[in-house]
């Protein structure tokens, strides 16, 4: 039986194969990735595109969450100051309604309440990153201006629209309440009550002062209810932040499952390929000079 005397082609092709295995293993070790070209795993490469998009999106959701959280916290702390001011106004009203004050005293109290009204207007004009947060979506318009001719003593210049921001897939949070709802709702009118109290104090009628103080108290209750919106929003965003972080971990571990090279495996492959290669080389070196001529002298 004849065999192919030109076996060096076969051994060479084995050598090439070992070399290419060596290259693959080296590349995996160097990059830490299984998929260095789409052809390494076409379906996996497509998955990586989607995974990368989701990771980027999750990053963005995290950023959105902290920006919105900042805005809600700013609104909440402004409203907390409004609550303090209203409490102050209620004490002043109670003091004015106790029947022991001269008109001069009452006028002085009315002055203080006016100061409180100014403060509340300023608080209602709070802005976050240059945008007014109580003017609906008209964020470039200052929501409240003092207006002695208006029944509430102020004019609302904003609109009644709201914005929402997506902070996770299918999860959008409302980022604002219009000032007209927070400060001048049907359940309580902060500016109306304050104006009522000022007018009552100036009139000197104890009963009217008492009624106006009650109105301020009612508006305080209403405002506190509105404030809950912001508190809830912050809570929701906090838990969303936690969710997003675990989501990010999930996505990264998914990426690693698809693309992460098993370094132990890759180094084993590398040394296997090297062994194969040196074995083939040794065989080649031994076999090529082997022929009958060596045994003739």
């Amino acid at each position: 039986m004849r065999v192919n005397p030109n076996f060096s082609d076969d051994i060479l092709s084995d050598l090439y194969q070992a070399q290419s295995q060596e290259e693959t293993a080296l590349q995996q070790l160097a990059s830490g990735k299984l998929i260095n070209l789409p052809s390494d795993n076409p379906a996996g490469a497509a998955e990586l595109v989607q995974n990368q998009a989701l990771q980027d999106q999750t990053d963005q959701y995290e950023q959105n969450t902290s920006v919105v959280e900042g805005q809600l916290q700013t609104a909440d702390s402004a409203l907390s100051s409004v609550v303090d001011s209203l409490n102050q106004a209620i004490s002043l009203g109670t003091q004015g309604a106790n029947g022991t004050n001269s008109q001069a005293d009452l006028d002085a109290i009315a002055q203080q309440v006016q100061g409180i009204q100014n403060q509340v207007v300023q608080l209602a004009n709070t802005s976050y990153q240059g945008n007014f947060i109580f003017s609906g979506t008209a964020t470039s318009t200052q929501p409240y201006t003092l207006d002695s001719s208006a029944p509430d003593g102020v004019t609302y210049n904003g609109n009644t629209d709201t914005n929402t921001v997506e902070v996770a897939d299918g999860n959008s949070v409302q980022t604002n309440l219009p000032g007209s709802q927070v400060f001048q709702g049907t359940g309580g009118d902060v500016f109306g009550a304050l104006q009522q109290l000022i007018t009552a104090l100036q009139s000197g009628n104890t009963a009217t002062i008492g009624a106006a103080t009650t109105a301020v108290s009612t508006s305080l209750n209403y405002l506190s209810q509105q404030r809950v919106f912001y508190g809830n929003g912050v809570d929701q965003l906090n838990s969303n932040q936690t969710f997003l972080q675990s989501e990010q971990v999930n996505l990264q571990s998914e990426e690693n499952t698809v693309d992460g090279a098993n370094l132990a495996q890759a180094s084993t492959n590398l040394s296997n390929a090297q062994t194969t290669q040196s074995a083939a080389l040794a065989a080649l070196a031994k076999v090529i000079p082997q022929n009958l001529l060596q045994y003739l002298s």
Partner: peptide, 21 residues
């Protein structure tokens, strides 16, 4: 293209937090 697609939409998502910026 893939990375730029998500970067584009993320920049819009970012804009939603401050649309007049």
């Amino acid at each position: 293209i893939g990375a730029n697609l998500s970067a584009f939409f993320n920049s819009i998502s970012q804009l939603s937090t401050d649309p007049s910026n």
